[in-house]
């Protein structure tokens, strides 16, 4: 828990108790006025639980999200591309950290969240359970996956929970280069040989649908959305965000010269928006249920990294302990 976020020691569980009517009324008032809740404020249990779930899922996505791109750093086609990819992956690690910090202010410690991730109890975005067989996939991830993430995240800068909103502001600032570098990877391929253009198109064909599913199921099948929107921890519905994303993508795809793999896409003059076809939600639920291409591999890699790093953490702890003991001894001698 972050003290400078305004939390007094030992007060973590205050909000866990039922809270009286006055506290509930005050909370409702803040929600109605689109105000902010800070860690020391009273909040309903359900709000706290929903936040921990949402923020930690988001943090896990950033952390697992390093893998599909991390595995291309060594194979990226130039030193510049390697450096860019490394900077991006490093950003994602930072995003995970900002979000874990925000979740911790709600009283859930980081080890618990790590544990939930590597034991498969916690979810992360299904998009990271797809393989990245070609270099063009680095372009598609930046353009489509980071693009969808940005679309999702910008409204969350105004989330009702203070530490979450502040983390999102920082993240959004950093994300903007992610999407652009992906777009430019695809653009470079589209300006290349026939084989390169084909590679870019084939990659977008694979990522387009899954990226659109990042916004979650259609509104009619998203039972928790209503509550999250009332709490201002979700600002727009899944379908609204998806529509907004597609409206941005279509002109960008034209610049690239890439065809979005949905023949139903057509401008709707009346709605001033693009119509789009149905997505394959069976696939979405399959991946969500753990039967995607890479679910097992991603968790296994995460577990290896976490457990393999234990000796480093232990060594750092031992070093800090010894330094502190030496400082204490020196002080005792002076006294």
């Amino acid at each position: 828990m972050s003290l400078a976020e305004g939390t007094a020691p030992g007060r973590m569980d205050r909000g866990a108790a039922g809270g009286d009517d006055a506290e509930m009324a005050r909370f409702d008032e803040i929600m109605a006025a689109d105000g902010r809740i800070e860690p020391t404020d009273w909040m309903p249990d359900a709000y706290r639980r929903a936040l921990v779930r949402q923020i930690s899922q988001h943090a896990h996505s950033e952390i697992i999200g390093m893998q599909p791109e991390g595995n291309w750093i060594g194979r990226a086609p130039s030193l510049k591309r390697k450096a860019i990819l490394m900077a991006k992956v490093q950003d994602e690690a930072g995003h995970g950290l900002y979000l874990y910090s925000a979740a911790q202010t709600l009283g859930t410690d980081r080890d618990t969240m790590f544990e939930q991730l590597i034991t498969g109890k916690a979810r992360y975005s299904s998009i990271f359970n797809y393989f990245t067989p070609t270099w063009a996939d680095m372009g598609s991830i930046g353009w489509l996956v980071d693009g969808a993430a940005i679309c999702n995240q910008v409204p969350l800068c105004r989330a009702s929970y203070g530490p979450y909103g502040r983390a999102m502001v920082r993240i959004c600032k950093e994300e903007s280069f992610h999407q652009r570098q992906g777009f430019e990877i695809l653009l470079a391929l589209m300006r290349g040989t026939d084989a390169q253009r084909e590679m870019a198109q084939e990659s977008v064909n694979r990522w387009y649908g899954p990226a659109l599913m990042m916004f979650g199921p259609p509104d009619a099948d998203s039972p928790n959305s209503q509550q999250s929107m009332a709490w201002n921890i979700k600002r727009f519905s899944n379908d609204e965000l998806r529509q907004r994303f597609v409206d941005m993508l279509v002109p960008q795809a034209e610049v690239l010269g890439i065809t979005l793999p949905d023949p139903a896409i057509a401008w709707n003059e009346e709605r001033q928006s693009y119509d789009l076809g149905d997505l394959d939600w069976t696939e979405f639920h399959e991946v969500l249920a753990g039967r995607g291409q890479a679910n097992a591999e991603r968790i296994e890699r995460r577990r290896e990294a976490h457990e393999g790093g234990e000796w480093v953490r232990e060594a750092a702890r031992a070093y800090a302990r010894k330094q502190a003991e030496a400082a204490d001894a020196a002080e005792a001698q002076v006294a």
Binding site: M1, S2, L3, T7, P9, G10, M12, Q104, T105, G107, D109, R110, D111, T112, R313, A316, R317
Partner: peptide, 13 residues
């Protein structure tokens, strides 16, 4: 540090 629980010794915040 506040917010840290559990038996394992953790790095301070």
């Amino acid at each position: 540090s506040p917010g840290e629980s559990g038996g394992r010794e953790q790095w301070p915040l």
